[in-house]
Design a protein around this nucleic acid. Structure first.
Lengths: 210, 210, 210, 210
DNA sequence: GGCTAAGCGAGACGGTACGTCGAGTCTTGGT
DNA sequence: ACCAAGACTCGACGTACCGTCTCGCTTAGCC
């Protein structure tokens, strides 16, 4: 989460662990109250009952702090087996949409992505903390569908990975775009249509390389 | 573009039209050089050879200015008839990806979307200046495919509109997510897979309501 | 009062005379309401129902305008013959003190004097519009006292002038200092003491050159 | 000099003492170079090698800063015993005139007095920092003259104080008026006349109450 | 009675300074 | 070595006024 700058952290007073969690909670609370652009380090420090120094000892800047504060929320997403690929997709899409409704996620996610376009370390942190961690959902869903026989078994592993990535970008992208850019509700109808599109299209993608 | 606050503009010195265009150009240039978060009103004013006051007389804040400066870039997108739905999709996706590669777009788009989550007027401005204007691409592509017989003709107009919206969110969202969040290249292979998914899936969506 | 810039003012629309007086009145009103430092040209123009351009066509800047607006107030001072030098002095001192109590005078006088320390034209304007015009009071008072026999008749005219100047600076300076710097009331007792000092001291000054 | 806003200054980084003196020196230098009206807080900060915030943390505005910066100059005035009341007066008047010739004093004194007409706290600050501190000169001079037998000993203490105040206002006011309003030199002749007036008049003031 | 030159109200313009705020760093004394 | 507190530098913010300019529209006097 936050890196130790000193090579040997045996000596000296150890960092307070409560401070870490208090800061992250305070960051999320500040995001809810103020949104990304009005959130200040001083305010977060104040809410956490901590000095600004303590924040900067742990995170290099506002962006990295917010990524860490928000990343954990994405771990709530899970993929219970609902018996069909389509049901699994609909479930995870609704979960993801609910997550994007929360003000701390809504305001923070696009902001850090925007910052990351000019900040490679931040981009890496986002990828590691959020993006790559959630690809598991696509992998699990696809494997399960293969076990059920809804999808053909793997042939070329690179093709499989490329398709996984595509599905991930399509689902995540479509939901984000619907919720934040188009600013329309992600409701049952829309989700049904999206999953129909995906399930129907996956066959066509699979036969592409042949 | 920028609203007149005074009800009657007959009297007094009229606003300089050159200033308007100079400011928008300067804004794009500053986005290229500095990115969203480092862009300052003072810097834009300086580049445009204009006083800061002149900026604030026309735009209430950085966000609205940037939306106006960037919106025009999206009008470059067009949809030449390439003979098949799939070719049309691939073409517009590549165009859009190229647009997102430009630093002024890349850095600005997500930032203003992030801000818009807490700013309804800005959200409206984005929708009016960017989102709704580009839906025309989906409409044209769909109509053309229907004329070609690639897609069935319209039955229920609300279903058609919902599908158009879905396709718009899926295409735009997937490309943005691929380019900015996953930070992977939108290359020919990826585009081919995406368009295969869409063309293949559209049939499934069409038969959904039956 | 205000100079004509054009060499020949025969042609063209003549300047509005009402504007002149309206501006000076508005300036005094603004001085009362806002004081010197908060007074703005725009506000004066607004009060006078006049465009800013009209102000600048007549006065080069805020300082000169204020000098003209305030100067006329000093012309109220007069010296009725009260029968003795001492009574005359007490009367004019009380008059001057009353003038300095008025907010427009109080706030403006010291301000323009302060500005004049770095602005020779303004210094000249103050001298011409205010200082030199009020020296008449000292001259009249002295002549009258000589006629009454309270003071010896003139011998050396330069000595007389120097003494007049001294008395002027002492009276004006003492009252201003009492009222504005020490910020104590100029009451009957104080005035009595001051006039006693002056009347008593004038003899000593007269015998100085011998 | 500058008030501590926080009640308990034990904690946190203490204020830099060098900053205080650097700011006051820079203020005087800026007064010399630019005069009162052109002096800006940003410029002072720059000269002092200090951030603007640091100025505002210590002084609420330009006026208070300038009073503090200039007040110390008045402490240079002193009253060596020259053997006679008249010599003492002439000496202090010349000293004061020399002080008023210095550009930092000349430009600042009247300006802050002008501002003080609308700003009671500033008026109090001027009184405490400048006016009351320099009344000592009058007190010392009067006591010394009494010891020499040039003036009668004290009878009524309130009369004495009133006369001290009068002399203070007359001397300070006359010199300021001569130097800044009339804008004439305070030379030996003028000083001789002024001290003759005072010494001659003091007797008359003393016999006033009887 | 039309011409012309200046005046006029309105308000945008380029500047400059304001006073505030936030970022991120540094310096205390104390744990 | 940690911590809370708070002062520090730096730089941008959005506002206010300055004094100038550009409009379209009077308003006089002279031909």
């Amino acid at each position: 989460m936050c890196s130790r700058t000193s090579r040997n952290s045996r000596t000296g007073r150890p960092r307070s662990i409560e401070a870490d969690t208090a800061i992250l909670e305070a960051t999320r609370a500040a995001l809810v109250d103020l949104g990304w652009s009005k959130l200040t380090m001083g305010d977060v420090a104040g809410r956490a009952g901590v000095a600004k120094t303590t924040l900067y000892r742990r995170w290099a800047n506002k962006n990295e702090l917010v990524v860490d504060a928000v990343a954990v929320l994405f771990d709530e997403l899970e993929l219970p087996d609902l018996g069909s690929l389509r049901a699994d997709i609909e479930h995870v899409v609704l979960q993801f949409a609910a997550l994007l409704e929360r003000p701390e996620t809504k305001t923070a996610l696009m902001a850090v992505v925007a910052e990351s376009t000019r900040d490679a370390p931040l981009r890496e942190r986002i990828r590691a903390s959020i993006v790559d961690r959630q690809k598991r959902l696509v992998l699990d869903g696809r494997r399960r569908a293969q076990q059920r026989g809804e999808l053909p078994s793997d042939r070329d592993p690179t093709t499989v990975e490329a398709t996984d990535d595509l599905i991930f970008d399509v689902i995540a992208g479509a939901v984000v775009h619907r919720a934040l850019v188009s600013a329309e509700p992600v409701d049952g109808q829309w989700v049904a249509r999206l999953s129909a599109l995906l399930v129907g299209g996956l066959g066509a993608v699979a036969t592409l390389g042949e």
